[in-house]
Amino acid sequence: MSSNNNRHRTLLRAYGVEAIIEADDRNIFEKVKAVASKALVGRLTFGEVGESAERPVYSFLTNDSGTVEFNIADVTSGEYKDDFGFERFLNGAIRSHIAAMSKSWVFLHAGVVEWRGKAIILPGHSHKGKTTLVSELIRLGAGYMSDEYAVMDENGLVHPFERDLGVRFAPDEGPTPVDPAVFGGARAIDPVEAGMIVFTGFVKNAEWKPETITLGSGILESVPEVIPFSFNTEFVLKVLNTTFNRAIIVKSDRGEALDTAPKILEYFDQLIIDVR
């Protein structure tokens, strides 16, 4: 085991959160930095650690047998020898930790596209088909914002979290990164207001029959998808209130994404016509 003096260290800053990355192996250190950059879609900086306040540490230390013992901010820990698969694990762990610890941003598990200058937010957990639906929406011309998080600032604006789409080509496979351009879609760059929040899940042979729900119900429905709701509750509730208050909130089962995507966009367009 190495001494503290031999450790490579850097201070990661992202979304108002600071964490120290440390490793005793230069290659692992650089690799972790690269994974962090990817995990946080480049929205981070690395700097000097300095001597100030205590911060969470992402630690990677190699023991005598060549096994790497890792600890991600005391939230998850373990060891690995063969790093096959570890990079993807680490990507998710860093992203989750930053999202969870941020006090100035709200991360809602959701697919997000930009349409007519507004965000259409599809809250939902992993493995619920939101990437499939998002990919169909961008195939129809919607701008790609995220298939992972709706990232909201204190003013209720929705920011892109534009990682590649995580497409599962088989139910038992992990996600493969796919550039939205493959679906003919462009990445949205600017933050936008929310236009529609859609709570939907795949049900075989279901039809898209959206029903509007109240603002309070919409916020309540999103609670299981906010990271983490109980950590910064007052701020989260305020941001959700501000964001969702500008949008129509609907709920419906859906059938295949291919059939549902055009109906979602048509529904949104009709809302705009009705408002005018």
Binding site: V75, T76, G78, F89, A93, S96, A100, P228
Partner: peptide, 9 residues
């Protein structure tokens, strides 16, 4: 903190 974000072991 991590539960709903991932199924991290």
């Amino acid at each position: 903190v991590m539960a709903q974000a991932s199924c991290t072991c």
